[in-house]
């Protein structure tokens, strides 16, 4: 307990070193968040910044909050972000070219003005004197928090509970898609295929060469050209089709040559 109080009220050299190193990293992470072209890189940079913030919480004596920061933010929220990024397309890179006239200048101007004013305000405030958390944590850190949450802030606590539930329901409602028509049956699907006259039988399987999983390799038509139909639409859209037709055609030519040689030899032996 005394160690906790000491950590809360003192600013040791170790903490100073830790602040300057990790603070620099945190700022770099933040800058990377806003400057990375790909959303996934941004998310990872932000996760790093958040972990550093968790360390700072611990350094400031907010142990519970530090742990929560790691679990909730880095563990849950950032993973949610990553999940959505994956859903939207992980490889899509944003263009950082500004399209609104004057927006970037204004943003930089406002940002600089705001930051300078904020820092000037903090410097202006008389905050030199500080107390440390020794007395507040006298009954134990988590116990102290619990006492506050369940006494003075109990209504706010209950209301945030309601807020969370509402948010969960809201997310479900927003992402849920109501089916407005009956799903087509097998029979209806087959009848439609016949009516439209395209691809009556099932799609042909991809070309399978017993070397590796060849789901991205199109099957070849009798003349050796690849058939697009044999590869999944998604792979086609991503341009991830591995065309092996050239190789196959070369194999075919070699086979013909070999067979021609053999036949020629046989004719010659006759």
């Amino acid at each position: 307990m005394s160690a906790v109080a000491a950590a809360a009220s003192a600013t040791s050299t170790g903490e100073a070193v830790q602040f300057w190193i990790l603070g620099t990293v945190a700022v770099i992470g933040a800058l990377a968040t806003i400057l990375m072209k790909k959303a996934v890189h941004s998310a990872l940079s932000l996760a790093g910044t958040m972990i550093i913030l968790a360390v700072f919480y611990l350094a400031n004596g907010a142990y519970f909050l530090g742990v929560v920061q790691v679990i909730v933010y880095t563990g849950a929220i950032m993973m949610l972000f990553l999940f959505v990024v994956m859903l939207v397309g992980v490889t899509a890179a944003d263009s950082l070219k500004e399209t609104i006239k004057g927006q970037r200048w204004l943003a930089v101007l406002c940002g600089l003005g705001f930051g300078i004013l904020l820092i000037a305000g903090i410097g202006n405030a008389s905050l030199q004197h500080f107390n440390g958390l020794g007395r507040a944590n006298s009954a134990g850190h988590v116990e102290g928090l619990a006492q506050l949450i369940f006494t003075r802030y109990v209504f706010a606590f209950e209301v945030t509970g309601a807020l969370l539930i509402t948010a969960a329901v809201g997310a479900m409602v927003l992402t849920h898609r109501e089916r407005t028509e009956r799903a087509a049956t097998q029979r209806e699907l087959s009848e439609r295929r016949v009516r439209e006259g395209v691809q009556l039988p099932p799609l042909p399987a991809p070309g399978v060469y017993a070397r590796h999983n060849a789901v991205d390799v199109p099957g070849l038509l009798p003349d050796g050209t690849p058939s697009e139909l044999t590869v999944s639409k998604t792979l086609r859209a991503r341009g991830q089709v591995r065309d092996v037709s050239g190789e196959a055609l070369a194999d075919l030519k070699a086979l013909e040559r070999r067979s021609a040689e053999r036949l020629g030899r046989e004719e010659a032996s006759k």
Partner: peptide
């Protein structure tokens, strides 16, 4: 500093997730 960086990011990025 972090707050200002975040605010600037809101102003200059177009991707909703970012």
């Amino acid at each position: 500093l972090l707050f200002t960086i975040g605010a600037a990011g809101v102003l200059i990025r177009r991707n909703t997730i970012v």
